[in-house]
């Protein structure tokens, strides 16, 4: 089944290599996901690498019945997000703090979602934002540091809610 998925979705070499690394129990679980969901290749990749990392870390298969229940009821993307929160416990906790901090500024429509490409910025922000002015100051600084990559996501919502 996984080979059909790889062929039909023209998966990249790195996805093929990643899937080849999966131990039998994880591969079986990923194939089970494909029976009730149609993840696109980036989502499948995130699922496979997160599951593999957790398996190496804990020795247990994280794609258990609970995972399948969530994935089939709420969708595979949400289930993968939950899985990544387990994989990145410390970072998730920092993100949660940051969200609280920003919501405490009294701004509306701020929505920060778990995104590995923005994690560095989040962690940096969490220690420096205490007011709406701080948020603007940090915006400029970060934009110059990382050439604005992905920052629009955060600051567009900030400006919209201003």
């Amino acid at each position: 089944m996984i080979n059909d998925y790889i062929r039909d979705n023209k998966c990249s070499e790195s996805i093929k290599r990643l899937l080849a690394l999966l131990p039998p129990d994880l591969l079986e679980a990923v194939e089970k996901v494909l029976t009730y969901s149609k993840p696109n290749p980036p989502t499948l990749k995130l699922l496979a690498e997160t599951a593999l990392d957790l398996k190496i870390k804990t020795g247990k298969n994280p794609l258990d019945e609970k995972f399948h229940e969530l994935a089939s009821s709420s969708g595979i993307k949400d289930a993968v997000d939950k899985l990544r929160e387990l994989r990145f416990e410390k970072i998730t906790s920092i993100n949660t703090d940051l969200k609280k901090q920003i919501s405490g500024l009294g701004l509306k429509n701020i929505n920060i979602k778990f995104d590995t490409n923005l994690e560095e910025s989040f962690i940096e922000l969490s220690s420096r934002i205490y007011s709406p002015e701080d948020l603007n100051a940090v915006k400029e600084e970060l934009a110059s540091l990382i050439e604005g990559k992905g920052l629009d996501k955060i600051f567009k919502t900030y400006n919209d809610g201003k």
Partner: peptide, 18 residues
């Protein structure tokens, strides 16, 4: 691939940088 699935150092929390 080279060292099998015992690379626990890779399971620390890493962040993709710019």
């Amino acid at each position: 691939e080279r060292t099998g699935l015992k690379r626990t150092r890779l399971t620390a929390e890493f962040i993709k940088c710019s």
